[in-house]
């Protein structure tokens, strides 16, 4: 009897990639130590998961425990909520390299379990934090400092459409060449924008030096402050693209608990409409915000993708010891 040798016990990353990851972790720790940013750890398992419509947290069933009032836990899709509670408690500037989990995401740039570098800077706005992200990323990758490009300008330039003022039907029409008429008609405005972003803007960004995409539409503000710029409301949210790869997502953070509650409720309504679980409202986060979240900016950066760029690989498996199908 012969059988196909099964190599699935072996790591998909080379030893050289594992060594690079260790060097990257040291680089990150040195970077923040020099800037007096405190390394912290927060729970990966908690009673609430992210409310974002498009992020699916992984559910965990808990055995009954004294003083724990829920039997349902969620693996965190980012350490954001807990880190904000530390900020409200007066922790000052903080960072962590966390394991994060997002259900249903597997591809050449995704694994359901991945590493996030997340940090918060009291007193910074989005511009200050972009400068720090640039220093960290471009210092490690030895690349020129990124350019800034507004979301609106990127869409004008590469999709020939104004993402803020175009009608819903005009956006849907732009999507038809990718998804066909039937699906295009079913897409919401934000889904159309996401489709054009990933099919038309990202490929264009591949040809550019590192680029910050900033000033997102208010409907995609998530946890960012908004303001009016050029007659439209923009979110103080930014993402860094290097070689077309989305590397981080940052906010000039919303600190208003009432507005945050309103956005969570809207998120939960959208989730219900999409047949996804209602994530409730993390009252401890809102209580922390009410007690006083300092004015700050924060960002989450994908460490696996940063390593992909460092090593010039196209497949995330080459930087993970064991991707989900081998874990």
């Amino acid at each position: 009897m012969s059988s196909t040798p099964d190599n699935s016990w072996k790591p998909t990353a080379s030893l050289a990639a594992l060594e690079s990851r260790a060097r990257q972790s040291s680089y990150v720790r040195d970077f923040f130590a020099a800037r007096n940013v405190l390394e912290v750890e927060t729970p990966a398992l908690a009673s609430h998961g992210a409310n974002d419509l498009n992020i699916d947290s992984l559910r965990v069933d808990l055995a009954p425990l004294p003083q724990v009032d829920t039997l349902k836990g969620w693996l965190q899709s980012s350490p954001e909520y807990h880190m904000k509670r530390l900020l409200a408690a007066g922790a000052g500037p903080i960072y962590q390299m966390a394991r994060a989990f997002r259900n249903g995401e597997r591809g050449v740039r995704h694994n359901p379990e991945f590493s996030l570098l997340e940090w918060y800077r009291p007193g910074f706005d989005d511009l200050d934090l972009m400068a720090e992200v640039a220093a960290l990323v471009c210092g490690w990758l030895e690349l020129p400092m990124p350019e800034r490009l507004t979301y609106r300008e990127a869409f004008r330039r590469y999709s020939g459409v104004d993402a803020f003022t175009a009608s819903d039907s005009a956006l849907a029409q732009k999507c038809e060449r990718w998804v066909g008429t039937e699906l295009a008609a079913r897409l919401s405005r934000d889904e159309c924008l996401d489709l054009l972003l990933s099919h038309e803007i990202e490929p264009a960004l591949r040809q550019l030096p590192p680029t910050f995409l900033c000033h997102y539409p208010a409907s995609q503000a998530a946890l960012a402050k908004t303001s009016v710029s050029e007659d439209v409301t923009v979110a103080h949210r930014f993402e860094l693209y290097v070689e077309g790869l989305e590397l981080c997502n940052g906010y000039w953070e919303l600190t208003d608990a009432t507005e945050q509650r309103r956005r969570f409720e809207l998120d939960n309504q959208s989730r219900q409409a999409a047949g996804k679980p209602d994530m409730g409202i993390d009252e401890r986060l809102l209580a922390a915000m009410e007690s006083g979240l300092p004015a700050c900016a924060g960002v989450a950066l994908g460490l696996d993708r940063l390593l992909m760029l460092k090593l010039g690989t196209r497949d995330i498996a080459e930087v993970l010891s064991f991707p989900v199908e081998r874990a």
Binding site: D52, G107, H110, D190, D194, S198, H199, E239, E246, N249
Partner: peptide, 14 residues
Amino acid sequence: NELVKPGKGQAFNR
């Protein structure tokens, strides 16, 4: 089959 998904956005399969 390729998964494309902006971090906070809708996932698509190309």
